[in-house]
Amino acid sequence: MVADFARDDRKVAMLFLLPGVGALLVTYLVPLAYSLGLSFSEWDIRKPGAQWVLSGFGNYTDLLTSEGFWRAGLRSLIFTLAALPIELVLGTMIALLLTSEMVSSKLSALTRVLMLVPLMLPPVVLGILWRLLLNVNYGPVNSLLGLVGLGPFTWAAAPDTAMATIVLVEVIANTSVVSMILIGGLLSLPPEPIRAAEVDGAGPWRILFEIKLPQLASYYLIIVLIRVMDLLKTFDFIYALTGGGPGDSTSMLNLFIYRVGQRFLDYPMASAASWVFLVALLPLSIWLLIKAVASSKDYLND
């Protein structure tokens, strides 16, 4: 941009950068290098005092031919692709509802504050809470659905329904993110085109689909990027709600890696799995980077 600040400042600048950059090196570069080395190694942890030795691509070939890994990856994908569209549609509907002129503004303001609650709930608490709510025998959800003749459902307790349950809880917890971003977007829309369309006789649906939503495209892009990254990373509430079970029906990549490493103590394999996961995330990350760097042009003196 502008060379507004003096060249002598560079020394101080380096000093300013030191703690942050140092911490990033220690907390990212060192463990990543370590895990990369480990992923190409063998380590017989049963022998006391044994160290790991480089051994080539063995872990990667084992991993990529193991059914468990692919199933976990597929589950991550299913979870993400199931939750995302539901959150987008529901989030849009809630945002429209809460900005609608037909709903009392006090009530919608109250709802907006209350929507913070599921969002701010610690993920572990979220998992525990839904464990209680969806308990097959003593939970209120099955009992209430029973009153209208539905169920009883097995929810998280059976492999067939566990994944759908996880998606349901995820949607309830995080649709607020989508709504809150969109509410901001909807309120910032210029009113003139909407008024003009109304005068010209356009119905509410046409105004929605041809005027409001297209103007929110950039908001949707950000939402999709953020949600996809977070959905793929989801660990905490699933750990507390199902622990990846029953069986391995909700064991997604994160839980798979955690289990391989912490339960079966196969550190090289877990490292290899993390690297495959990272590489799989790469296209998405690069896309996000391009978007973010493009939007940050004005933040930088570059």
């Binding site: 990373k233 890696i257 490493g261 996961f277 990272l278």
Partner: peptide, 14 residues
């Protein structure tokens, strides 16, 4: 953008 799980194992060992 890193999934924290990819750092958890090396953190543990280090």
């Amino acid at each position: 953008l890193f999934p924290p799980v990819s750092l958890a194992i090396p953190y543990y060992l280090l």
